[in-house]
Design a protein around this nucleic acid. Structure first.
Length: 418
RNA sequence: GUGGGCGUAGCUCAACGGUUAGAGCAUUGGACUGUGGAUCCAGAGGUUGGGGGUUCGAAUCCCCUCGCUCACCCCA
């Protein structure tokens, strides 16, 4: 095979592409009900934006970005996530000067150079939702609630919302010092990865699958928050309770991007292998000021669209089934193709889904095609009359040539088959 | 970046180192000269991912390479 889609990318064909539209429109409708508005931003940005926003030491920036120089030598990077771009446009357009709360959502492909595996691609899709301008814990709750509503609107019952607070930069760094000190005494018993992590990413040690059991004695971050972070976290939990949202505290939940602080959350499902997260997010109160804007708190999440699709599909493959629609027009006589052609376009102009075929194939195979492609009607044009067949019921009726207008009106939805 | 599994028809997969590489589904035609969802018959469809080696003989064994896939790392 000469040409293939590059590694980690893929083509989305019908009926999957139709499923994408169904899911996307649900997400959009839900976000808009919550008062969020759509933004579209570039697929690539100046590399510096991501280095600043996401953090120079994160895995994303260190080894996963698609970075290149354009013809003028500018360093550009295909976006590995959306929050940095959103923050950039927020500052660039001066929205930080506005004192209200700004609520946006976006959808688009993201790019990360990783080894593909189940539910993970090099080009993948995020549906992101962000609220800027308030540090109110209610806003954190609102976003988590939107996550819950979204997932439930796809009839997914088996899911879990994890929450945690990673505090602000002050209480977090104090905790890390404390944790690091304690771990130093026992790290020899830990796995190889943890011995490395203890210096590079201390918090990750807590999340290790192998050494999980060893961590019971260690202090947890959410117990070591400063008073104001602690109060914020309590209010988030209170708000979740008010809305009857089930959550589970996960002291080991740590996000991999530097801009997060305080509330972080993740929604996991058991559908894709062993509990995979399909969305993750949190608060980022320093990001806007870090990018040169007026200090503006923010909170948001990104949903892995591809993963959501997989979950929705494995939960209910029938969601792709749609009712029969439109009409397929054909004639066994090549001399009548002109008429077939004319009627097809006439029906299209009347707003009906209409299709015909100019291949010289048997009538039988054409009906087969129409059936397979989920058409509702099959109209056969003969020399002396025409036959309209309802492909759902199998019922059919003969019409005289003079009744053509009647058939067209009927098909475009203004009559029944009488 | 590390480690496992796998590449045979459009798809899912057979074929102990031994005739001309098969089957199901899908596709095309026919039985049914003007009709789908069922059945039967027939046709078309392949450089066994690519290259090299071992052998009288390779889809099968060995090496290289490309690709896919799963897991780790990390993330959505």
């Amino acid at each position: 095979m000469e040409y293939r889609a590059p590694r980690g990318t893929r083509d989305i064909l019908p009926p999957e592409s139709e499923g994408w539209d169904i899911i996307l429109s649900k997400l959009t409708v839900r976000a808009e009900e919550y008062g969020y508005k759509k933004v579209i931003f570039p697929t690539f940005e100046h590399t510096e934006l991501f280095k600043r926003g996401i953090g120079e030491d994160t895995d994303i920036v260190q080894k996963e970005m698609y970075t290149f120089q354009d013809r003028k030598g500018r360093w550009l990077t295909l976006r590995p996530e959306g929050t940095a771009s959103l923050a950039r446009l927020f500052v660039e357009k001066g929205i930080d000067k506005f004192n209200g709360v700004s609520k946006y959502y976006y959808f688009g492909s993201m790019f990360r150079y990783e080894r593909p595996q189940s539910g993970r691609y090099r080009e993948f899709y995020h549906f992101g939702v962000e609220a800027l301008g308030s540090d109110s814990p209610y806003l954190d709750v609102e976003l988590i609630s939107l996550c819950k509503d979204t997932v439930e609107s796809f009839a997914i019952k088996d899911y879990l919302i994890y929450i945690n607070s990673i505090g602000c930069s002050e209480c977090r760094s104090q905790y890390i010092l404390k944790l690091g000190g304690l771990l130093k005494q026992v790290i020899a018993y830990y796995c190889e990865d943890c011995r490395r992590r203890v210096t590079t990413n201390t918090l990750r040690v807590l999340d290790c699958k192998i050494d999980k059991h060893r961590n019971a004695e260690l202090p947890i971050l959410s117990d070591n928050l400063c008073p104001s972070c602690s109060q914020h976290y309590d209010e988030v939990k209170k708000g979740l309770q008010t809305l009857n949202i089930n959550w589970q505290e996960n002291p080991n939940l740590v996000r991999g991007l530097d801009y997060y602080n305080r509330t972080v959350f993740e929604l996991v499902t058991p559908y894709l292998g062993e509990s995979t997260s399909i969305l993750g997010g949190g608060r980022y109160d320093q990001l806007i000021s870090c990018l040169g804007g007026k200090e503006t708190p923010g909170v948001g999440f990104a949903l892995g669209f591809d993963r959501l699709y997989q979950v929705v599909y494995s939960n209910n493959p029938d969601f792709l089934n749609s009712p029969r629609k439109g009409v397929y027009i054909s004639s066994p006589e090549t001399g009548l193709w002109d008429k077939v052609f004319r009627i097809t376009f006439d029906l299209r102009n009347r707003g009906l889904k209409a299709e015909c075929n100019y291949q010289n194939r048997s009538l039988k195979s054409q009906v087969k095609t129409a059936d397979k492609d989920n058409y509702e009607f099959f109209l056969t044009i003969f020399q002396k009359d025409m036959v309209l067949k309802n492909l759902t019921t199998g019922e059919e009726k003969v019409y005289e040539n003079e009744e053509e207008e009647k058939v067209l009106v009927l098909l475009s939805g203004k009559g029944d088959m009488s």
